[in-house]
Design a protein around this nucleic acid. Structure first.
Lengths: 353, 353
DNA sequence: CTGTTAGCGCTTTCAC
DNA sequence: GTGAAAGCGCTAACAG
């Protein structure tokens, strides 16, 4: 019973301690614990090594392993904010795929929102094998890769404009938000709406520019429709203020409000109700994202579901493909409309132009 | 111009490469870049080292640094889910304090919710200096520290029951949720409510047990009041179902619903409205947390604001204190009621007992 | 003031 | 089938 001698009591046991306890060499321990002992180490030896490791509560020192291996099997996921459950989904999806390949994911919520991000190497405190950036501005992400000269990291952009100087080490995966917007407009048109205002998030990012364009295109394609746009800060209050402006504007009132985000839609519903208008009786409202907020509201929101987990999963797959120099699969994810209580036919037929 | 020889083109430059480029030794590079060269290295030399590092795009290899230093200046923050913006606040607060002390924070969303967590060492892929666990069950967190024998990590529990076997390496920081619940009940009582139902989250965790007890105590202290309790799954639908049960129960109806969470309160509002009851005209509703959801609803929610960032910040401070063997400050954070539109005096005076 | 040296804990040839 | 030894990139003693 001299096993107390194996480690200087209180310190973390090392593989050397395990080796001593099991009466073998450090190399054998590494082989066994690394699972590469097929036909190199005797079964009996392997068992005793595992027992010793167990008894000592041995955990490999990852810093040492990473140093030796020259990689960390870790990806950094950069997101603009944690206040939105959408990014929780992205993380979950990415982490799942990563785990299947023995990778880990470290989350880095950029302190600057979607703007320029601080150096993640100072924050994540790990050496990284690659970066996944979700819903970030292209410029913001440039800094993340480090000076382009000295070993730039593989980068996957999610829900963003493709990088201007996309090299071989870059990939992009996006939701088909343009199609989502098209589905919203078609839904509203088929309900009979002709006068529709787009409550547009006043945020300069790819995803919102695409929504703007898709809205204009879908409305423009149908004669006899009236499209308008109202910018809104990306908050409940911002949506409320914008919807109020849209609904009190002189001239015939819009019968439907298409909002760039569920948050904005929540504000729009409040505005409508405060103006004595009922949703969806007097005005229909749609959102985007399908966060849990969409069903917390009353009436529940008709909205476009963006599969966040799927996006994260595909992002991680793309990063793995990049690392292994494999070809990438189709980077556009289909989305679909979820029809709920906040949309209905307009109360009166739209007046002829 | 033979500077191209400094690194084997394509590979990450090391401190050795920088040393060669600057014509000094590796040690000097380390000193200069580590900021510890005061009076040890000549100004001229320091400048040329920095220039060389810049030119090569040199980044220190963190794995090597960590290995050498035996620590990573990194804390792991374990949270039950990313779907709740509360934890975003906790992270932000913790990260801010960490940064002020040269620490980083890595987020680990436990895949099992508040239940037992998987080994974070396999996921975060970093060696860690300590763990902060927010709103996790005590048992769930035990596994995180690794086998208690082999070098247990310092641990700070946030928003949780104190650990049974709290050693010197453990601390706890909590919101004063009991006081928050007391404030809710007092608010309702002073409005004239006497028949109040607690819509209680059916989750076995410290924070909800405290709310239950505080509600019962606050109601029990005032004669002539009627307290009831209705368990609810922690979702909008769960809250809706529970509120519906509470409001359709035979006998005099409760005039106020005290919900354990804003999510539950959202469901309660839906239930009331579906029963033809107005909020707050016929029934008052309160929440807990003050998430952005609270102001997205209409009417806005009277709720208890829990300062999440402050909690995270204090948690990180506590961890730092633990690491430096310093004494800890008061671990209970004050909370306060935010009165909004979802509460009002009951429409008819409560019937005498 | 600057260089040499040792070693953090691990994996991986290469001998035996 | 197992052990000895080298070395990943960095920092901190200690010499010069």
């Amino acid at each position: 019973m001299r096993s107390t001698r194996t480690a200087p009591r209180g310190a973390r046991p090392t593989s050397k301690d395990v080796a001593r306890a099991a009466g073998v060499s450090q190399a054998t321990v590494s082989l066994v614990l690394g699972g590469k002992w097929q036909g190199r180490v005797a079964e009996r030896t392997a068992v005793s090594v595992r027992e010793a490791a167990q008894a000592l509560g041995y955990r490999p020192n990852l810093a040492a392993r990473n140093l030796r291996l020259g990689g960390t099997r870790t990806a950094l996921l950069v997101v603009p904010a944690l206040t939105n459950e959408f990014f929780g989904g992205v993380y979950t999806g990415a982490a799942r795929v990563a785990a299947e390949h023995g990778f880990g994911v470290v989350l880095y919520p950029s302190p600057e929102g979607i703007g320029p991000a601080r150096d993640p190497f100072d924050s994540a405190r790990a050496t990284l094998d690659g970066v996944i950036a979700s819903s970030m501005a292209a410029e913001a992400v440039e800094a993340l890769r480090g000076p382009a000269g000295g070993g730039a990291l593989p980068l996957v952009m999610l829900d963003s404009a493709p990088l201007p100087d996309a090299g071989e080490l870059t990939a992009a995966v996006n939701h088909d938000v343009a199609d989502g917007m098209r589905q919203v407009v078609e839904h509203l048109l088929s309900l009979g709406h002709r006068r529709i205002t787009h409550v547009a998030a006043a945020v300069d990012s790819w995803t919102f520019r695409v929504r703007e364009d898709a809205f204009a295109a879908a409305m423009g394609a149908v004669p006899g429709t009236h499209a308008a746009s109202e910018p809104a800060a990306l908050t409940v209050m911002g949506g409320q203020a914008a919807a109020e402006r849209a609904l009190t504007r002189p001239g015939p009132r819009a019968t439907a409000l298409v909002c760039d985000d569920d948050i904005l839609a929540a504000g729009a519903c409040k505005a409508a109700r405060r103006l004595g208008l009922s949703v969806p009786g007097d005005v229909s409202v749609t959102g985007f994202d399908d966060l849990s907020l969409a069903t917390a509201l009353d009436p529940e929101l008709t909205t476009v579901r963006l599969p966040a987990q799927e996006l994260g999963a595909r992002g991680m797959s793309a990063l793995l493909a990049l690392l292994e120099a494999r070809p990438l699969d189709e980077p556009r994810l289909p989305v679909h409309l979820v029809s709920r209580g906040s949309t209905a036919p307009p109360s009166a037929p739209a007046p002829p132009d």
